[in-house]
Amino acid sequence: MTQMGLSLLTDFALPAGDPFWFLGGRTRVLVPGSATGSTMSVLEFDEVQGQAPPLHIHEGEEEVWIVSPRLRMVAVFAPAGIEEWFRKNGSPVSSPEEAPASFDIGAIVASAEAFQLRVAGPPPTA
């Protein structure tokens, strides 16, 4: 992403959503679909090293990922809507010091089809 593109994300007037746990990592909705007429959404992920989601295919949207050296990732999804799946399957972060919340991978996978997200295999291994 260009410097101008990053500036657009950081200068956006909408405050970022509250963080929530998703698959053991901290996630935030930076730009919800409701702010873009459902054309796109932007999420931030602080991933846990050594952990990955199952292999999957987004059948309802395109995605672009920006990765920083600190395991922080920003994803742009177009059109919007998938952020609701992340929220639905997350749990609130009470404090920055707390350990990640446990999660039920079976329930997360089972809810994916309603959001046109198809699980294609287990998480990749290193």
Rank of each mutant, 00 (worst) to 15 (best):
L55C: 05
L55P: 01
H56G: 02
H56L: 06
H56Y: 04
H56A: 08
I57V: 06
I57N: 09
I57M: 09
H58C: 01
H58G: 04
H58K: 01
H58E: 03
E59I: 00
E59L: 07
G60V: 08
G60C: 04
G60R: 02
E61C: 11
E61G: 00
E61I: 03
E61Y: 09
E62M: 05
E62T: 14
E62P: 00
E63D: 10
V64K: 09
V64Q: 14
V64N: 12
I66W: 14
I66D: 07
V67E: 15
V67C: 12
V67M: 15
V67L: 12
V67A: 13
V67Q: 13
V67F: 12
V67K: 14
V67I: 12
S68T: 14
S68E: 15
P69D: 14
P69Y: 02
R70I: 01
R70E: 13
R70Q: 10
L71N: 15
L71H: 15
L71C: 13
L71E: 13
R72E: 11
R72A: 08
R72T: 15
R72N: 13
R72M: 08
R72H: 10
R72P: 01
M73T: 12
M73I: 12
V74E: 10
V74I: 15
V74P: 10
V74W: 12
V74K: 05
V74F: 14
V74M: 15
A75D: 14
A75Y: 03
A75C: 13
A75N: 13
A75S: 14
V76K: 05
V76E: 10
V76W: 08
F77C: 14
A78D: 05
A78L: 04
A78S: 15
A78N: 08
A78E: 10
A78C: 12
A78R: 08
P79K: 08
A80N: 11
A80K: 11
A80Y: 05
A80V: 10
G81L: 07
I82T: 06
I82Q: 02
I82N: 04
I82Y: 11
I82K: 01
I82D: 00
I82F: 13
I82E: 00
E83S: 09
E83L: 10
E83G: 06
E84I: 04
W85S: 04
W85G: 02
W85V: 02
W85M: 02
W85F: 07
W85I: 02
F86R: 03
R87Q: 06
K88A: 11
N89H: 03
N89F: 01
N89V: 08
G90I: 05
S91H: 06
P92R: 11
V93W: 03
V93Q: 09
V93E: 11
V93S: 04
S94V: 09
S94W: 03
S94E: 14
S95A: 10
P96T: 07
P96C: 14
P96K: 07
E97H: 07
E97R: 04
E97W: 02
E97T: 10
E98V: 09
E98T: 03
E98P: 02
E98H: 03
A99C: 01
A99P: 01
A99L: 03
A99Q: 06
P100Y: 06
P100L: 13
P100W: 08
P100D: 06
A101F: 03
A101Y: 02
A101W: 00
A101N: 04
A101P: 01
A101C: 03
A101V: 05
S102T: 12
